[in-house]
Amino acid sequence: MPRWLAHLIVIALLAAACGWAFASLDMTWNWGVVWEYRQAFWKGWWMTLGLALAALLASSLIGLAAAVMLRSRFAIVEAFARVYVELIRGTPLLVQLLVGWYVVAAALHVGTEYRAAVGVLVLALFSGAYMAEIFRGGLDAIPKAQIDSARAVGLTRWQAFRLVVLPQAVRIVLPAVAGQLVSLIKDSSLLSVLSIGEFTFAARNVNSATYSTLESYLPLAAGYLALTLPLSALSRWLERRFRYEAA
């Protein structure tokens, strides 16, 4: 059976099951009222895309820096990165966002107009801890022989890192980074607790204005899938694309 056909069959079965579940609920749908709020959804969806991209960029830089620190010869440098990674990965993002905004940002007298910026920063720090482990794995995967070769042709340590190690490590970690972006997009929904006007916040507002819960949240699921499914596909494509280079 071709792969696409198998996918289609599974999706059809799933749709049938959902259809049966909703039919047995005997619901009265109220899509008309929610349709009035399509602009709010649309704005929130774009906001989510923007926040996630900004957080991805920042978390890549944070993650790479932390990965390099995790591999440091200096125990104190390694310790900083290790504590950061374990602390962030071991606590809920919700708590980090609340502490980040109501404690840290408040202590620094950050104005409410920077809500979104603080939210992105906390999200980036959160995702950066996962990125750090992804990048560390990628850097560790480069054989020592490559560094020997780089030194043998006369490259400096920094040149060897920039021209030999990093480009190979990036190829190795790209599929995992794309997967991390999928998580990042969904995790950004928690920014709604800081009243940042992203996609989930929009759905919550529509729900409280219309009392049409499913009609508010089902489009939310569809909107996230529209972002995450292409990313998953990209991740798998990258994996195939760079497999050949392991020689």
Binding site: Q146, S149, A150, A152, V153, Q168, E245
Partner: peptide
């Protein structure tokens, strides 16, 4: 060395050029 001398993300030509250009 015995093996793994070349940089696998670069073509043979780019492997030859890298030290000439960057070193």
């Amino acid at each position: 060395f015995q093996a793994y001398n070349l940089f696998p993300h670069l073509t043979a030509m780019q492997n030859l050029l890298l030290p000439l250009v960057h070193v």
